[in-house]
Design a protein around this nucleic acid. Structure first.
Length: 275
DNA sequence: ATTGAGACCTGTCGGC
DNA sequence: TGCCGACAGGTCTCAA
């Protein structure tokens, strides 16, 4: 279930097994995911060490001692797990969809599993990284300092698309996905149907709605990252997502959650308290 | 320039 | 029980 919080949680979980260690082996169990693996993928990785392991939007980036960057995307159904004892006791049910295994000098095996294969792995030179079409067009990183009301208003200024659709666009906010876009709009009491431009003035300055929305996005994402990172697993509980027909959880609202399709994706919202 | 529809692929769930 | 359609957390491309 990879949106920004899931990807960030995966990064934190893997980092201690990845950063500073050498890749001793790469096993590719099929020729492609969403796209073919790049040429000489294995040869360019084996023997190199991971220097840094970072996240940008929903992408994971491992910079290697060779100077190249391993780029990973989990797509819709991808996940990464660590097996500390590769010699035997991995009891994963899904081994059928284990497509890539990195054997690290830490002794850990890092396994990429992705049933739907919408995920992606690529290996980029410095030059390719800087010019990458998907990465270079990404918008603000929502948990960073420079994502504030003015930034969001600027990104939504003069956009006719519905607010929810604009939020899903990675050029607006990098890493928001379908669940947390709905959740953030509900937290901010803003309708997903209103025009994106309505949170900015005619001059592109932030309206109060832009402040509410920025605060809500940060809160919703931070809470989700925390929950995902917690040692004891806690099942996700959403306030609106996937709750069509149920009572709005905002105290005193009494509305009913509705579902509708925007840009081909399900949006959940409470028409009573989201304006 | 934006926007919507369709494509990519497998798994799961509800209805009959 | 089994078959079938609808749908799922993301992104890309193509046509209007």
């Amino acid at each position: 279930m990879p949106e920004l919080p899931e990807v960030e949680a995966a990064r934190r979980r893997l980092d201690p097994f990845f950063t500073g260690y050498r890749i001793d082996d790469v096993v590719l169990r099929r020729p492609d995911l969403r796209a073919p693996f790049p040429r000489r993928f294995r040869a360019r990785l084996v023997g190199r060490s991971v220097v840094t392991f970072t996240r940008r939007a929903k992408y994971l980036l491992a910079t290697m001692s060779s100077g190249e960057t391993l780029l990973m995307h989990l797509g819709m159904s991808g996940s990464l797990r660590v097996n500390c004892r590769p010699t035997g006791d991995d009891r994963s049910v899904n081994a059928r969809h284990d497509h890539v295994v990195f054997a690290m000098s830490s002794g850990a095996a890092i396994i990429f599993n992705d049933p739907r294969r919408f995920g992606l792995m690529d290996l980029l030179t410095r030059r390719q990284l800087d010019a990458h079409p998907a990465l270079s067009t990404l918008g603000f990183e929502p948990l960073s300092q420079d994502f504030d009301a003015a930034a969001l208003a600027g990104a939504c200024y003069r956009r006719n698309a519905p607010l929810k659709v604009a939020l899903l666009d990675q050029k607006t906010v990098a890493g928001l996905g379908n669940i947390y876009a709905s959740e953030a709009l509900h937290a901010a009491c803003l309708s997903p149907l209103r025009k994106a431009s309505s949170i900015a003035t005619a001059a592109g300055e932030p309206q109060p709605a832009a402040c509410q929305l920025v605060t809500a996005i940060k809160q919703v994402l931070e809470k989700a990252v925390e929950r995902q990172t917690a040692r004891t697993y806690q099942a996700a509980r959403f306030r609106v997502y996937d709750r069509e027909g149920a009572k709005c959880l905002r105290p005193g609202c009494g509305g009913t959650v509705r579902r509708r399709v925007q840009a081909g994706r399900s949006t959940y919202y409470c028409p009573r308290c989201q304006r």
